Each structure stands twice: as C-alpha cells, then as structure tokens.
Amino acid sequence: MSYISGKQLCIGLIAATLTLSAGGFTRVSAQEIPNDFSAIVRQKLPAVVAITTRQIIQDQPTLDDFLNPFDGRGPVQPQVREALGSGFVISPEGYIVTNNHVVADSTEIHVVFSDKETSPARLVGRDPATDIAVLKVDPRPNMTIAAWGDSDAMQPGAWTIAIGSPFGLGGTVTVGVLSARSRDIQAGPYDDFLQTDASINRGNSGGPLFNARGEVIGVNTAIVSPSGGSIGIGFAVPSRTARSVADQLIRTGRIERGYIGVRLQEVTPSIAEALGIAGTKGALVASVEAGSPAQKAGIQPGDVITRYNGKDIQGVHDLTLAAANQKPGSTATLTTSRGGTQQDLSLTVGQRKDEEVQTGAVPSQGPGDQRLGLALSPIPDEA
C-alpha cells in the first residue's frame, strides 16, 4: 500500500438525457450531468494547496565511530528529509486540512497556494488513527475556502473530482466515479474509506475529493499500487470523519473517542451454532472490562451485539466505528442476543483513556496494548 492521490477525463455529455426508472423514463437535468468540471475547478482550485515538509534525521553513531574517533570524518551530520503532499483551506482564519502522514515528525512545514505564493504553516493537531491533520497559516485577503459535503449521501457511480499535487505537479485535476463506500483496508482501527477511480498518486495525499457540486466529500489518503503509480484504486477518508476530527483538533488540539469497554470477537459459523443463533452477523463479547460502561449496562461475555443506536452491526469493525464515533457522555442503545433471547440495553458512552498529547497524536503502544476505544481479542480455544 502506498500513499496517494489524483485521471483527467474530458466528458462530453448532452445537456439533458433520459434514464430508465421503475415508472419509465425520467429526464435528468443538465445540472446533474455537467458537460465538464471547469467551473468547479476554477472556483475550488485556489482553496487547494501543495505542502512541503522538512524533517531533520539524526544519524545514530556506528561502532566504527566509537572505535575510530579521530579518523578525520568529524561528528555525524544530521540529514534532511523532504516530502510533498496536498491540503485544502477550510476557513478564512487559515486552517488547512491534510493527512497526518504528510506532516508527522516534520520540523518545517510550508504551503504553496495556486498563485505560487508560499507561507509557513503551524501544526495545530494531528490524529494518526484517522490520518487527518490540521495546519494553520496567516490569513490571506479573500482566501478561497473549500466547503464540506455529505459523504454519506454519495453513492457508487457518482462523480468525484480530485485536485492536488501528485509528484509536485500542483493544481492537477483528475476525475472519476465513486467506486465503493465503507472500505476497510486494514490501515487502522477506524477504516471507513471511500473508494474512487479518479487517478491519485504520490503527492496527492491530504488533497480534497470533491463531488459534482464542488463540495469536499473526502480526503485522499491511500492507493492500491503494485508499481507505486495509480491503477484506479484510491481511498479517501470520508468527510463525515475528516470534518469531525478537524473540528476537534481546531477546538481543543486533541481527539475524544467513545469507549464502552468490551473485547470483541467475530461471530463465525461454528460460534453461531454453539450459541444457538442464526447467522454470523453481530459482534461477540469476549470479555467486559470491570467498571466500564458495558458492565454497568449489564453486558456479559457471550453476548452478541447485533444493533447499535438502531443500526445493524455486521461485525466487529462496525461496532468499533460506531462506539468510537459517538461523543463521550452521550447515551447509546444496544441490542444484544444472549442464549437466543434478544434484549435492548442503554449505556452512557465513556471516553477512551489513552492520554493523547495536545498535538492529537496517539502515543506509541506496547505490543500487548490493543485498546483503541473497542479492543479486539481472540477467544481462547479452551475456556
């Protein structure tokens, strides 16, 4: 997996067309099927920036340096690593959204606007778990802003437009369609990516993915690429997630995630048979943390959580996302199956106890620490 973003298409479609519907043919307006995307690009291009970063790498002394301290080479010199990425302005105050992996561990950050003006940027906060970061530059006169759109309203087949700086080529526009939603690419515990076939490449990371109305519905983040170039499989953090994370980072510099205090296991056919339940949907509770919201609500090991706040839970990943995305202190309703009997429970969502630093960074964890809101654990073969 390599990181991302930008296939420019020239689309010549008639001003209005007919589509087949259940009741016959329905006329589709020209606004829904644009002749091209030049108007949107002209309006939104100034809101998209290129990001350049510098990182000082301190080389570790080698054994030879200690054995031959007077060989004339002098002290080990630090190395400078430079990286490129993309981002977009979200407020007149100069806040810019990008990817965490674009700016992580950087000692210098600069943004380059579409008019080639360069400004130093300050890191406001970052969230490695969702790969979102927020920068701040001094406001410019009449700064163009990219407005958030509704990623949940996007359906496969809808137009998507990526603008960014692949390989340092600022202002590159590529177009495709939304290929799929809710992709889990095993990049992190909160994977919920939009998939697009708009051509995105190295350097597009952190750039916006627009809908046909010019609203940001995703932040380009990753690609599947055997060669390092685009093969038409790209992924973007949905605006639902990116906007929430960015708002929290701007407001407090840190991220709050919901926590209910259970360890989970996927429901396999053999487990479903043993529990006497039909199908493998839901998340099996392997253990419940003492004093947690789940224990206080009466959830027990062996319960299968099948619904959360009225939405079906297909598996562990669904429940992890649902709990993490809920505001601590709010009330959640769960449906559980115990011994074939369903029951509805309510609990007050807690806050994940990880001590995130003010940059929003998640601290490094030990090999045995898997707690990220909802921690996952296999059930032992023997009870």
Rank of each mutant, 00 (worst) to 15 (best):
E93W: 09
E93F: 13
G94Q: 05
Y95N: 13
Y95I: 06
Y95K: 12
I96S: 06
I96C: 09
I96A: 07
I96E: 05
V97F: 05
V97K: 08
V97T: 08
T98K: 00
T98L: 05
T98I: 04
T98C: 08
N99E: 03
N99F: 00
N99L: 01
N100C: 08
N100H: 15
N100R: 06
N100G: 07
H101Q: 08
H101G: 06
V102R: 07
V102S: 08
V102F: 11
V103H: 02
V103K: 02
A104M: 10
A104L: 13
D105G: 10
D105V: 08
S106E: 01
S106Q: 03
S106G: 10
S106H: 06
T107S: 12
T107H: 15
E108C: 11
E108F: 13
E108T: 15
I109V: 15
I109N: 07
H110M: 14
H110L: 11
H110T: 15
H110E: 10
H110A: 12
H110R: 14
V112S: 06
V112D: 00
V112W: 00
V112H: 08
F113G: 03
F113Q: 01
F113I: 02
S114G: 11
D115W: 08
D115H: 09
K116Q: 12
E117N: 11
E117K: 15
E117C: 07
T118W: 04
T118Q: 12
T118F: 03
T118P: 09
S119G: 05
S119N: 09
P120T: 08
P120Q: 14
P120I: 06
A121D: 12
A121Q: 10
A121I: 06
A121T: 11
A121E: 08
R122E: 15
L123D: 01
V124S: 07
V124P: 02
V124M: 08
G125S: 13
D127A: 14
D127K: 10
D127W: 10
D127V: 10
D127E: 12
P128K: 00
P128V: 00
P128I: 00
A129V: 09
T130C: 01
T130A: 02
T130Q: 00
D131N: 02
D131S: 01
D131G: 01
A133G: 07
A133F: 00
A133N: 04
A133H: 02
V134I: 11
V134C: 06
V134D: 13
L135V: 13
L135E: 12
L135R: 02
L135G: 07
K136Q: 15
K136C: 11
V137I: 09
V137N: 00
V137M: 01
V137K: 01
D138L: 13
D138E: 14
D138Q: 08
P139A: 07
P139N: 06
R140T: 09
R140W: 03
R140M: 05
R140K: 05
P141Y: 02
P141M: 04
P141T: 04
P141L: 04
P141D: 03
N142E: 13
N142K: 10
N142I: 03
N142T: 05
N142V: 02
N142P: 02
N142M: 06
N142D: 14
M143F: 02
M143T: 07
T144N: 03
T144W: 04
I145L: 10
A146E: 04
A146W: 03
A146C: 05
A147K: 14
A147G: 09
A147T: 07
A147V: 05
A147R: 14
A147S: 13
A147P: 14
A147M: 10
A147I: 00
